[in-house]
Amino acid sequence: MAADPDRTDPPSVVCDDLSKRFAEGTDVLRGVDLTLAAGRTTAFVGPSGCGKSTLLRLIAGLETPSGGRVEIGGAPPSETLKRAGLAMAFQDPSLLPWRTVRGNIELALKLARKPADRTAIDDLIALVGLGGFDEVRPAALSGGMRQRAAIARAMVTRPGLLLLDEPFGAVDELTRRQLAEDLPRLWEARATTTILVTHSVQEAVMLSDRVIVFSSRPARIVGDVAIDLDRPRPASRVSDPDFVALATQVSEALARGMAGPQDRLAAQ
């Protein structure tokens, strides 16, 4: 494959004794140690509010750790930010309402100081199933369509590190299945290091090479499951025994992490 001058090499990600405490005193993360291999896809799974999104923001350099450090390719996140080496799709699609779908995707290239590539944008718009909506403004799109536009925006700069915070939250089931087949193919072809936050165990197993399971707040790692399933992984794989076994491992780790107040409430 010919070298692509636009893309950034996939970096490894290291979190070393990483902690985060918010100003009002809430402990969100405590002593997280993690090494994510370059070019692989990792899913973060955990109960709501456990700190998965905060961990993603710490990796993106959007939050400052209270303790420990993050390294992307051996350098702090600020270095990666400076050369636009990462992109993030947020929980909220965060599309600028005065720009069309295409305009929002082009904006990412502008921010990353990369030239606009009409064909690449068209391809991405088609990939996320928004063909024909490229000149439409976000207000006229459904929640799922906005989220897909946000995914396309995050991918257009061909970042070495792609961070996705619950990217399929508002996407309908059929599109979700299609994206779950198409996106990993693209990440693999581009050898992108991808980190995905999700609530869905099935989605985590389907999309990733490794699933990290977090406990309730303050988040600590309670499970680390390698997903050694072949790719591509069509939707029909979910009923395969090996898929089910991996999903069960993740679910059990999740249940361990959630033990505590929930159990007491259930007992009541």
């Binding site: 923001r57 993106a60 350099g61 959007l62 600020s78 990666t80 930010l81 400076k82 050369r83 636009a84 990462l86 992109a87 993030m88 947020f90 929980q91 909220d92 965060s94 600028l96 904006l107 990412a108 502008k110 921010l111 990353a112 700069t157």
Partner: peptide
């Protein structure tokens, strides 16, 4: 989150202002 978007590409207050 709009400002997070700008910051996630390593851009600063002036870019936030313009875009």
């Amino acid at each position: 989150s709009w400002f997070d978007l700008v910051r996630s590409y390593g851009r600063g207050p002036l870019t936030e202002l313009v875009h």
